Amino acid sequence: MTFSVQVKVMPLKELLDPQGKAVMGGLQNLGIRSVSDVRIGKSISLQIEAATAEEAKSIAEEAGRKLLANPVMEYFEIAVN
């Protein structure tokens, strides 16, 4: 069975996000002042062949740990559809 899996990779909350700060400054320059914080991350879509949704999630978690996210600077979340 093929599962569609979304992996969201974001910078750790404790770390400065330079891209987010740059976008925040741009929004302020455009007069959009109601935004209080911006964090920039990655959204990765995987099509995984697996017997169960749990197995697909396990495969995605392994990919996240080994390749998709840098654990020193990022965390990741997985959603199986």
Rank of each mutant, 00 (worst) to 15 (best):
M1T: 13
T2K: 14
T2D: 13
T2Y: 06
F3M: 09
Q6R: 13
Q6M: 06
K8S: 13
V9D: 03
V9S: 09
M10H: 03
P11I: 03
P11R: 11
K13I: 11
K13H: 10
K13S: 15
E14L: 13
L15M: 14
D17G: 08
P18L: 08
P18Q: 08
Q19F: 05
Q19R: 13
G20C: 04
K21L: 10
K21W: 00
A22P: 10
V23W: 02
M24A: 11
M24L: 14
M24I: 01
G26N: 12
L27A: 02
Q28P: 00
Q28S: 09
Q28Y: 02
Q28F: 06
N29V: 00
L30S: 12
G31P: 14
G31C: 11
I32S: 05
R33V: 03
R33N: 15
S36Y: 00
S36H: 13
S36G: 11
D37L: 04
D37S: 14
R39F: 06
I40S: 00
I40E: 12
G41L: 10
G41K: 06
G41R: 08
K42L: 12
S43W: 01
S43Y: 13
I44Y: 01
I44V: 15
L46A: 01
Q47W: 00
I48K: 06
E49I: 04
A51L: 12
T52F: 06
T52S: 15
T52L: 07
A53G: 14
E55A: 14
A56R: 06
S58N: 11
S58E: 14
S58A: 15
E62M: 09
G64V: 10
G64Y: 02
G64R: 05
R65M: 08
K66L: 10
L67R: 06
L67F: 14
L68G: 01
L68I: 06
A69R: 08
A69G: 11
N70E: 12
N70P: 10
P71T: 12
V72K: 10
V72F: 08
V72A: 14
M73A: 07
M73Y: 02
M73W: 02
M73L: 12
E74T: 04
E74M: 08
Y75T: 15
I78Q: 05
A79F: 03
N81P: 09
